Amino acid sequence: MLSAFKPSRIAAVAAASVAMLAGCAPDSVRNIEAKGFNAYLDSLKTTCPNMVVGSSNISNWLRTNGGNGDDNYVYWLDQTSRLYYRRISPAQYRDSVSAALGGKSDSRALDCIVQHLPADRPTHPPGGKLL
């Protein structure tokens, strides 16, 4: 029965599985080649010091490259990626992040993040279309 599974078929199934899983990941996690987005995040370390929304310390996340298994960090990073790549508006960003992190929609941290968006930012990550 195992002889029916040829190596080429197994490789094709494995490749399809990896492609499907990559499509489910948030933009910010899926695309390690997002140099513009990464540079934007790096710039926030100095332009927006002491960012806190609710009980989440965004500045600390940026200094330590995120939280270990912190769902709030993953959500914030994905929403910030969506904002950067123009998939959501600044108002949608403020509403979604403040609701998820328990902060006010007029948070100084969110204002700073939005104010420092590059004007010439792209509409999708490098290397392909957004799903």
Score class of each variant (00 low, 15 high):
116 H>M: 08
73 Y>P: 04
59 S>L: 05
48 C>D: 12
90 P>S: 07
9 R>C: 03
69 G>A: 10
11 A>P: 08
129 K>M: 14
61 W>P: 05
120 D>L: 07
25 A>T: 02
94 R>H: 11
43 S>Y: 05
88 I>E: 09
85 Y>Q: 01
62 L>N: 00
78 D>Y: 08
65 N>Y: 13
68 N>H: 13
38 N>V: 03
15 A>W: 01
64 T>F: 03
80 T>M: 03
88 I>S: 10
99 A>K: 15
39 A>M: 00
123 T>I: 15
105 S>W: 15
113 I>W: 07
33 E>W: 07
14 A>D: 10
101 L>Y: 09
49 P>F: 01
108 R>G: 05
42 D>S: 09
73 Y>C: 00
80 T>W: 11
31 N>K: 03
102 G>F: 04
79 Q>R: 14
33 E>H: 10
46 T>I: 09
46 T>L: 06
110 L>C: 11
61 W>D: 09
3 S>Q: 11
109 A>G: 01
97 V>D: 00
131 L>H: 15
50 N>Q: 14
19 A>M: 11
30 R>F: 06
96 S>E: 13
109 A>D: 00
15 A>I: 14
81 S>L: 00
37 F>I: 01
80 T>Y: 01
18 V>H: 05
130 L>H: 13
91 A>Q: 10
42 D>F: 02
81 S>H: 13
79 Q>I: 05
81 S>R: 10
121 R>Q: 15
126 P>Y: 00
60 N>A: 06
81 S>Y: 02
14 A>K: 07
47 T>P: 04
110 L>F: 07
73 Y>E: 01
7 P>S: 02
23 G>K: 01
54 G>A: 08
92 Q>N: 12
70 D>W: 03
7 P>E: 01
20 M>D: 08
66 G>I: 12
116 H>G: 09
40 Y>E: 01
83 L>P: 00
42 D>R: 15
42 D>E: 14
44 L>V: 03
5 F>Y: 12
129 K>S: 15
31 N>S: 06
13 V>D: 04
39 A>H: 04
52 V>P: 05
44 L>E: 02
126 P>I: 13
111 D>R: 12
51 M>L: 13
42 D>Y: 08
95 D>W: 06
118 P>R: 12
14 A>T: 06
110 L>R: 09
9 R>G: 06
47 T>G: 11
27 D>F: 05
31 N>A: 03
90 P>T: 00
63 R>A: 14
98 S>K: 03
80 T>A: 10
36 G>C: 03
82 R>V: 02
4 A>D: 13
121 R>D: 06
89 S>F: 09
87 R>I: 11
114 V>P: 06
131 L>I: 14
70 D>N: 15
103 G>D: 04
66 G>Y: 02
129 K>E: 10
102 G>H: 06
47 T>R: 15
60 N>L: 13
86 R>Y: 07
100 A>M: 08
30 R>H: 04
28 S>K: 01
4 A>V: 06
74 V>A: 13
15 A>L: 09
40 Y>Q: 00
5 F>R: 12
46 T>W: 03
6 K>N: 05
48 C>Q: 12
24 C>G: 11
102 G>E: 11
14 A>R: 00
9 R>D: 12
1 M>F: 15
